[in-house]
């Protein structure tokens, strides 16, 4: 039995009211959407906010619709409704797959896309009960002064573990944020930073209100790969999101790949303009891209699965994703 600490639960009716509540309790309040990350973390004593501010009942945070050349998704939309939405399935196959591969059915009914973006980083030494962490000795991320993963580093390298984030980065999505100080928009590709303790640029008093994704062109193809222990429930050991613009004869006009579940920040694979753009998406190009990704990805023991094996899986799944793209089996706007 895992008991929660005592807190006050607020159910504001609007984003403005939620933002006001959040701002009025600095350091003592957190927002909750689906609660599928925050509730287990609170049960582990990782967060003990005195005020918990619910978002799901706020109408403004719902809805999935096309508007001005974008698909606009309310932050409190569940992963189940995102993955099943007809426009998402038809135009953003990788997003539908990623949202549909999070955890299990119950958690996808509860968990939201906004919560997925703001998911706390994860680590074998952190996502444990208070009893467990106390027995081993606390770590940098919570109450301690060492990192059990790097042993030496002064930085937390807990794994960014959300499945939809890399996909949203490759799709050029933008996150809208709101606080008592006003609203701003951040491209999802700039949303994450390499700090496992707080791995986003979101200010403590900001609420993610929606995610906007530019509608794809007929040349856009997307793919998503996830490595996990079991076919359901488990967090990713690795996930790979790919978006390509393909011209005639599979000529690559643009290629974006993001690999995550490594460190605190999803990794954008660089240098693809040198090995892929302007070439046909054939076996040779695929291999060159897979090797690029391998060179740039360095899994750590923040996840309790052999990091060498996880690294070896990077090129395997990049190849699978690109083969899918070439076959056109995961094609947007067809």
């Amino acid at each position: 039995m895992l008991r929660l600490h005592e807190y006050t639960y607020h159910r504001p009716g609007s984003v403005a009211e939620a933002a006001r509540l959040l701002a009025s309790h600095p350091g003592r309040a957190r927002v909750i959407a689906g609660g599928t990350d925050l509730m287990p973390n609170m049960k582990h004593g990782l967060f003990t906010p005195e005020h918990v501010i619910a978002l799901k009942q706020i109408g403004e945070l719902h809805g999935i619709e096309e508007r001005d050349g974008e698909l606009v998704i309310g932050a409190a939309e569940s992963l189940a409704s995102v993955s099943r939405h007809p426009v998402v399935r038809a135009q953003f196959a990788s997003l539908s797959q990623a949202a549909g591969s999070v955890a299990g059915p119950q958690l996808r009914n509860m968990g939201t896309i906004g919560g997925n973006l703001c998911l706390d980083t994860r680590c074998t030494y952190y996502n444990q009960t208070h009893f467990w962490r106390n027995a081993l000795g606390y770590c940098l991320k919570k109450d301690g002064d060492v990192c059990h993963v790097t042993k030496v580093g002064r930085k937390c390298v807990a794994a960014h573990s959300a499945d939809t984030a890399g996909v949203l980065m490759t799709l050029g999505a933008v996150a809208d944020l709101e606080s008592v100080n006003g609203a701003r928009s951040v491209p999802v590709v700039d949303f994450f930073i390499a700090d496992g303790i707080e791995n986003t640029v979101r200010e403590w008093n900001e609420i993610v209100t929606r995610v906007r994704i530019p509608l794809p062109s007929p040349r856009t193809r997307t793919a998503f790969q996830k490595v996990r222990q079991r076919g359901a429930i488990d967090f990713p050991l690795l996930n790979i999101a790919v978006v390509a613009q393909l011209g005639a004869a599979l000529a690559i006009e643009d290629l974006r790949i993001v690999v995550s579940a490594l460190g605190a920040r999803p990794r954008v694979i660089s240098g693809l303009d040198k090995v892929a753009v302007g070439r046909p998406l054939d076996e040779e190009t695929t291999e060159a891209v897979a090797q690029r990704a391998f060179q740039q990805c360095h899994p750590l023991t923040n996840i309790i699965v052999d990091p060498d094996w996880r690294r070896a899986m990077v090129p395997v799944h990049v190849r699978r994703a690109l083969t899918e793209l070439a076959a056109g089996s995961v094609t947007a706007a067809e």
Binding site: M1, I32, G35, M39, P40, K43, Q106, L107, N109
Partner: peptide
């Protein structure tokens, strides 16, 4: 009350017809 933290599904109930995990759902929801 199995794992009591969202892993196992033993606490599954339906909320407006959709299965959810009651061990990590605040009662007020």
């Amino acid at each position: 009350q199995g794992c009591d933290k969202g892993d196992c599904g033993a606490c599954t109930v339906l909320l407006d017809g959709a299965p959810i995990l009651s061990c990590i759902t605040p009662a007020w929801e």
